[in-house]
Simulated scan of single mutants.
Amino acid sequence: MSSSASVWLVLLCAVVLANLPFFNERVFAVGPARAHKGFAVRLLELLLYTALTIGVGRWLEGRNSQIADQGWQFYAVVGCVMLTLAFPGFVWRYLRRRH
Protein backbone atom coordinates (compact mmCIF):
# COMPACT_ATOMS: atom_id res chain seq x y z
CA MET A 1 0.00 0.00 0.00
CA SER A 2 1.35 3.41 -0.91
CA SER A 3 1.84 6.12 1.68
CA SER A 4 -0.89 8.22 0.12
CA ALA A 5 -3.38 5.36 0.42
CA SER A 6 -2.28 4.82 4.03
CA VAL A 7 -2.98 8.46 4.88
CA TRP A 8 -6.45 8.29 3.33
CA LEU A 9 -7.17 5.04 5.16
CA VAL A 10 -6.23 6.57 8.52
CA LEU A 11 -8.34 9.66 7.79
CA LEU A 12 -11.34 7.53 6.82
CA CYS A 13 -10.86 5.43 9.95
CA ALA A 14 -10.70 8.60 12.07
CA VAL A 15 -13.89 10.07 10.59
CA VAL A 16 -15.88 6.86 11.00
CA LEU A 17 -14.62 6.08 14.50
CA ALA A 18 -15.05 9.67 15.73
CA ASN A 19 -18.75 9.62 14.86
CA LEU A 20 -19.51 6.03 15.81
CA PRO A 21 -20.25 6.70 19.53
CA PHE A 22 -22.94 9.22 18.61
CA PHE A 23 -24.72 7.25 15.90
CA ASN A 24 -25.54 4.07 17.83
CA GLU A 25 -26.73 3.00 21.24
CA ARG A 26 -24.54 -0.08 21.51
CA VAL A 27 -21.56 -0.01 23.83
CA PHE A 28 -18.40 0.01 21.67
CA ALA A 29 -20.59 -0.76 18.61
CA VAL A 30 -20.74 -4.49 19.47
CA GLY A 31 -22.01 -4.60 23.04
CA PRO A 32 -25.58 -4.81 24.23
CA ALA A 33 -27.99 -2.14 23.05
CA ARG A 34 -29.05 0.32 25.73
CA ALA A 35 -32.12 2.49 25.93
CA HIS A 36 -29.95 5.51 26.70
CA LYS A 37 -26.17 5.61 26.63
CA GLY A 38 -24.72 8.37 28.81
CA PHE A 39 -22.43 11.13 27.62
CA ALA A 40 -19.56 9.80 29.75
CA VAL A 41 -19.78 6.42 28.00
CA ARG A 42 -19.70 8.17 24.64
CA LEU A 43 -16.57 10.12 25.64
CA LEU A 44 -14.90 6.91 26.85
CA GLU A 45 -15.72 5.28 23.53
CA LEU A 46 -14.30 8.29 21.68
CA LEU A 47 -11.09 8.04 23.72
CA LEU A 48 -10.70 4.35 22.95
CA TYR A 49 -11.51 4.88 19.27
CA THR A 50 -8.84 7.60 19.22
CA ALA A 51 -6.34 5.07 20.57
CA LEU A 52 -7.47 2.58 17.92
CA THR A 53 -6.99 5.18 15.18
CA ILE A 54 -3.48 5.95 16.46
CA GLY A 55 -2.75 2.22 16.51
CA VAL A 56 -3.89 1.80 12.90
CA GLY A 57 -1.75 4.78 11.88
CA ARG A 58 1.32 3.43 13.65
CA TRP A 59 0.78 -0.01 12.12
CA LEU A 60 0.54 1.47 8.62
CA GLU A 61 3.56 3.67 9.29
CA GLY A 62 5.53 0.62 10.39
CA ARG A 63 4.61 -1.17 7.17
CA ASN A 64 5.82 1.72 4.99
CA SER A 65 8.80 3.06 6.95
CA GLN A 66 10.32 3.44 10.39
CA ILE A 67 7.97 4.39 13.21
CA ALA A 68 8.81 7.91 14.41
CA ASP A 69 8.73 8.73 18.12
CA GLN A 70 5.94 11.14 19.05
CA GLY A 71 5.80 13.59 21.92
CA TRP A 72 2.79 14.74 23.93
CA GLN A 73 2.07 17.42 21.33
CA PHE A 74 1.20 14.78 18.74
CA TYR A 75 -1.35 13.13 21.02
CA ALA A 76 -2.86 16.50 21.97
CA VAL A 77 -3.32 17.37 18.30
CA VAL A 78 -4.81 13.94 17.52
CA GLY A 79 -7.26 14.39 20.40
CA CYS A 80 -8.31 17.80 19.10
CA VAL A 81 -8.69 16.43 15.56
CA MET A 82 -10.86 13.57 16.81
CA LEU A 83 -13.04 16.01 18.75
CA THR A 84 -13.39 18.14 15.62
CA LEU A 85 -14.26 15.13 13.49
CA ALA A 86 -16.85 14.03 16.09
CA PHE A 87 -18.74 17.32 15.82
CA PRO A 88 -21.29 16.12 13.19
CA GLY A 89 -22.21 13.14 15.35
CA PHE A 90 -22.48 15.33 18.45
CA VAL A 91 -24.79 17.74 16.61
CA TRP A 92 -26.90 14.87 15.32
CA ARG A 93 -27.23 13.31 18.79
CA TYR A 94 -27.63 16.33 21.06
CA LEU A 95 -28.43 19.51 19.10
CA ARG A 96 -30.94 18.51 16.42
CA ARG A 97 -34.62 19.08 16.99
CA ARG A 98 -36.71 16.01 17.62
CA HIS A 99 -40.30 15.89 16.43
Results as ranks from 00 to 15, higher is better:
W59K: 08
D69G: 02
E61L: 03
R63P: 03
G57M: 00
L46K: 03
L52K: 02
L52P: 03
Q66T: 07
R93N: 02
G71S: 08
A86L: 04
T53K: 08
A68Y: 11
I54Y: 04
N64W: 06
Q66V: 10
G57H: 06
Y75M: 12
F74Y: 15
R93H: 03
L47G: 15
R58F: 09
M82A: 08
P88L: 09
L85E: 12
T50A: 12
Q66W: 00
E61Q: 12
G71R: 03
W72S: 12
Y94G: 09
R63M: 12
L48I: 13
A68C: 13
V77I: 15
L47Y: 15
L60G: 00
L52Y: 03
Y94T: 07
D69N: 02
G57Y: 01
G55F: 04
W72I: 06
L83C: 15
T50G: 08
R63T: 06
E61M: 05
C80S: 04
F74A: 11
L85G: 10
L48P: 04
R63Y: 01
C80L: 12
F90I: 14
S65H: 07
L46V: 10
Y75L: 04
R58S: 12
T50S: 11
D69A: 04
Y94M: 12
D69V: 08
Y49D: 07
Y49Q: 01
G62R: 08
V81Q: 05
P88T: 11
M82R: 03
Y49A: 01
L85I: 12
G55C: 11
R93T: 08
F74T: 13
F87I: 14
E61P: 02
N64S: 08
S65Y: 10
A76S: 11
G55W: 04
M82D: 10
Y49F: 09
V91E: 03
L83F: 13
I54F: 02
N64D: 13
Y75P: 02
F87T: 14
V56D: 08
Q70H: 15
L83K: 13
V78A: 14
V56Q: 10
F87E: 14
Y49H: 10
V91T: 01
Y94N: 14
A51F: 11
G55E: 10
V91A: 11
Q73K: 09
G62V: 11
E61Y: 00
S65Q: 13
T84D: 02
L85V: 14
G55H: 09
Q73P: 02
L52V: 08
L60E: 05
L46D: 00
